Amino acid sequence: MRRRLVFIPIAPDEMGALAGRSELVDRTAYSVTPELLEELGYGAEETEDAEYAALILASVAGLAAHGTRLIVVAEVDPASVEPGDDPTNGQVWLRSCPPSAITAWFADEPGVDVADAAAISKGMTIDQAWDQPAVQDLLHNHDLLWNDVVEYRREG
């Protein structure tokens, strides 16, 4: 069965979902949408670039919603994904994400100070937060770190 890659901004207290202690349901996530591809001018052969864009947009959404760039990556059943309110930014509505669908997560390197960017962007839309100098500084100077979900499950 074909799966759909989604990027889910979470709060730090939701990390238990990686180990199966909870399930991520009925929430905003980010994915490659036709509108995102059109907005960014990506062709079908640029899937990886579009996925990276969806990840970065999810990180800005997480910063505005949770004050952190903590993003769960999952490959879910396409039937669990519905159109979101902001498809140009890759937003989708995720009905459910079983723990077995989670493959990795991204987070800032320990010690990276996101406080200014988080405070300035709190409650903003992606487009509003994107335009903030503190957010741009964070995006340009601090890459997200990839983490394998297996490592978390071993430690958790």
Rank of each mutant, 00 (worst) to 15 (best):
M1H: 04
M1G: 14
M1S: 08
R2D: 03
R2C: 01
R2M: 06
R3E: 00
R4H: 05
L5H: 05
L5I: 04
F7N: 05
P9H: 02
P9G: 10
I10A: 00
I10D: 01
A11V: 14
A11T: 12
A11K: 06
A11Y: 14
A11P: 13
E14G: 11
E14K: 04
G16N: 05
A17M: 09
A19R: 08
R21Y: 04
S22C: 11
S22Q: 10
V25T: 15
V25H: 08
D26Q: 03
T28N: 07
T28V: 11
Y30E: 02
E39W: 01
L40Q: 09
G41Q: 01
Y42C: 01
T47L: 14
E48M: 10
D49W: 06
E51Y: 04
A54S: 11
L57C: 10
S59L: 05
A61P: 10
G62H: 04
L63E: 07
A64S: 15
A65S: 12
G67R: 13
R69W: 09
L70N: 03
L70D: 02
I71W: 06
I71V: 12
A74F: 01
V76D: 14
A79Y: 00
A79L: 07
G84E: 08
T88Y: 06
N89G: 04
V92K: 01
V92T: 02
L94R: 03
R95A: 07
R95H: 03
S96I: 00
S96N: 11
C97I: 10
C97A: 02
P98Y: 04
I102M: 14
T103S: 14
A104T: 03
F106Y: 07
E109N: 15
P110F: 07
P110I: 10
D116T: 13
A117T: 08
A117L: 15
A119Y: 12
A119H: 15
A119W: 12
S121G: 10
K122F: 14
K122N: 12
G123L: 00
T125K: 00
T125Q: 00
T125D: 01
I126T: 03
Q128M: 05
W130Q: 08
W130Y: 14
D131P: 09
D131V: 12
P133A: 08
P133Y: 02
A134V: 10
V135D: 05
V135E: 04
Q136P: 14
Q136G: 06
L138T: 10
L138C: 08
L139C: 11
H140A: 05
N141M: 08
H142E: 13
D143V: 11
L144M: 09
L145I: 13
L145W: 08
L145Q: 04
D148S: 11
V149I: 10
E151M: 15
Y152S: 13
R154P: 04
G156S: 14
G156A: 15
